[in-house]
Design a protein around this nucleic acid. Structure first.
Lengths: 159, 159
DNA sequence: CGAGTTTATTTTATATATAAACTATTTAAG
DNA sequence: CTTAAATAGTTTATATATAAAATAAACTCG
């Protein structure tokens, strides 16, 4: 741009800064997702949503309700029903009944599910580390902090 | 954590920095995607992939091949076929034949497509600006630059 | 208590997605 | 020219996704 950029252009550039930020966020996410999806399929014959759901359960040994999985994974309840069906059919998780509330299932990893997830998690982490290899630790930390603030901003009540 | 964090823990924390970064990237993207999807559905009865495809065509008045759309949108060719089918059925885009290569289609916006996209783009940009409202311009710029480097890093040949 | 509301999950219809196989066309090599 | 390989796009089968309707259980309050 020339040195004669006026107020109009400056305002317009500011407006576009958010748009550009969003497009880059989306692109980076898709690039990483595509790589991880391919690696999960090639090495473990599984998918990203299944891996993510198992990761949620691994962190919650007491089990999670369908609705809680839906909220944590930021997807609809119907979607959770489908993924849980698949994983349950494969024997990796179980729907447990909650004696206190018969509307609810507590979903838990099976022993085999925990075993398989442990193996996948190690590989998964190494893929991610490799993908970010070359981005200085300091920059990763800054990015991390910025995204953490952005996440807090996006989930604030008054939006 | 205690003040007695040793070398082992420190190394482990470094390893987890990339993983945490990836999870936050994914969360922020999903939060924004969900909001934009709902707004597009409510106000324009359309979807994010359709809007994105039209945005690609808006920037390329000469038209784009199916494969080029696939590469730019980071999705498979079969997916593009489906979205283009939908938009063509709605009269918003057309498949034009390329006289020089009969395997190829040049996909272009129709006049009605350009009209509708222009309306949507204005609204869309204001939603994005609102979502980031409250994140200081300086931080948005820093984030933008970091993500730009990350994107370059992720698309480098030697990965 | 009991009708009406809320909450948890599933079902339905439809739209994206992928990978892999397939068709048609073009390019390359002899 | 002609076969082989590469390229562009579509089709198929399957897995995620959504929104909206349906089901079932739990809560509320007059």
């Amino acid at each position: 741009m020339s040195a004669a950029v006026g107020l109009d252009t400056r305002l317009s550039e500011d407006t576009h800064e958010s748009l550009r930020l969003w497009l880059r966020l989306l692109t980076c996410t898709h690039l990483i997702e595509n790589r991880v999806r391919k690696a999960l399929a090639a090495q473990f014959k599984t998918t990203l949503p299944r891996f993510d759901l198992m990761a949620q359960l691994e962190r919650a040994p007491q089990g999670l309700q369908m609705g809680e999985l839906s909220r944590r994974m930021l997807v609809t309840g119907g979607n959770i029903t489908g993924i849980v069906d698949q994983l349950e059919r494969a024997g990796l998780i179980v729907r447990t009944e909650d004696p206190g509330d018969r509307r609810v299932y507590l979903v838990k990893l099976t022993k085999e599910g925990r075993r398989q997830f442990a193996q996948m998690a190690i590989e998964h982490e190494s893929w991610i580390v490799q993908l970010f290899e070359g981005i200085p630790k300091r920059e990763q930390r800054t990015l991390n902090e910025s995204l953490s603030r952005l996440r807090a901003h996006l989930t604030r009540e008054t939006l």
